[in-house]
């Protein structure tokens, strides 16, 4: 658990972060979102003490971070940044092994762990372990960046716009990976982004920041339903909030489930149970369909989603 109580950060006379209170529960993903210069990165960098806080108290699992040895604190926090920050003169394997090596793990343990992580991030170790960052695509490099942050199995993950420099498709893939990995590892995560869609997608709770203050700190759904003020409303966009809300729901939660999975009809279009209601709506609009069958990851038909269910499910 990370707690910030009345935390401020001043650079000379400018106030970057102004007496914010924020609690990140264990295992949840807290996304700090706001335009550039709003203090979101500053907040993140105060948590691993890359920046000192001028006032207030930051504690990790109940312990004041100023009382923890700074290197110990950072070694226990995975850190991923925009543009990867991979060391260009080290191979992928050595980059990922950075923190375990600092912690003095044995060579065998490090090798096993590196292979495990590269596999987790969808990078075949035998292909990628000995490549240099320059030989990777942007998406691959960022996967390595995330693997490096996870390497020593830290309790806390700090991510500073990690997908900010990627193209839309790659970003989309990596967000999916993040969700999948987070379901496996349950890290307490602080994630900074300026992209509200990314925030809505990844967050357990979102903190909307502006001018060094937190305007609203709530679940994506509550933020969409009742934005605290005009700034948050503007950030969400007034026109497509309904769609954004429907994007938060899974098809699997809104459909009517068959009593037993059955063989799918190969002729018709279908939805996956992990698709969002927003995607389901789009498919139905395109095919002018009243309802569509839903398949699970194995390909079996497990239920049916109707147009009405999207309506009731999304609101």
């Amino acid at each position: 658990m990370i707690e910030l109580k009345g935390v401020s950060c001043r650079f000379g006379s400018t106030v970057a972060v102004d007496a914010i209170n924020l609690t990140v529960e264990t295992g949840e993903v807290c996304v700090l979102v706001g335009s550039s210069g709003c203090g979101k990165s500053t907040t993140l960098r105060m948590i691993n003490r890359l920046l000192p806080h001028s006032a207030g108290e930051i504690s990790v699992d109940g312990q004041d971070i100023r009382r923890i040895d700074v290197r110990k604190l950072r070694l226990n926090m995975g850190y991923a940044i925009q543009g990867t920050g991979l060391f260009p003169h080290w191979t992928v394997a050595r980059n990922v092994a950075l923190v375990p090596k600092l912690l003095g793990w044995s060579r065998d343990r490090i090798t096993t762990r590196v292979d495990e992580l590269l596999t987790l991030l969808g990078l075949a170790p035998e292909t990628f372990a000995n490549k240099y960052p320059e030989q990777l695509s942007g998406g691959q490099a960022q996967r390595v960046g995330v693997a490096r942050a996870l390497a020593a199995d830290p309790n806390i993950l700090l991510m500073d716009e990690p997908f900010g420099a990627l193209d839309a498709i790659t970003r989309d893939n990596l967000q999916n990976e993040m969700l999948r990995i987070q379901r496996q590892v349950h890290k307490t995560t602080v994630f900074v982004t300026h992209d509200i869609d990314e925030a809505l997608r990844l967050a357990t709770r979102i903190a909307v920041m502006d001018q060094g203050r937190i305007l609203q700190h709530d679940t994506p759904e509550n933020i969409l339903r009742s934005p605290a003020n005009a700034f948050v409303e503007n950030l969400l966009g007034s026109q497509d909030r309904g769609l954004k809300l429907s994007a938060l729901r899974r098809v699997g939660d809104a459909m009517s489930r068959h009593p037993q999975p059955c063989e799918p009809d190969l002729e018709t279009d279908w939805l996956s149970e992990d698709d969002s209601l927003r995607q389901a709506l789009s498919v139905m609009l395109w095919h002018e369909a009243e309802q569509l069958p839903v398949r699970d990851a194995g390909g079996a038909e497990i239920g049916v989603l109707s147009r009405d269910q999207i309506w009731t499910g999304a609101t």
Partner: peptide, 21 residues
């Protein structure tokens, strides 16, 4: 800067940053 920042953020000491990076 971002390399130094990443290294420092992951817990490298100033000495390690200098010698290894």
């Amino acid at each position: 800067d971002d390399l130094v920042d990443a290294g420092r953020g992951m817990g490298m000491s100033e000495r390690q940053l200098f010698l290894k990076l």
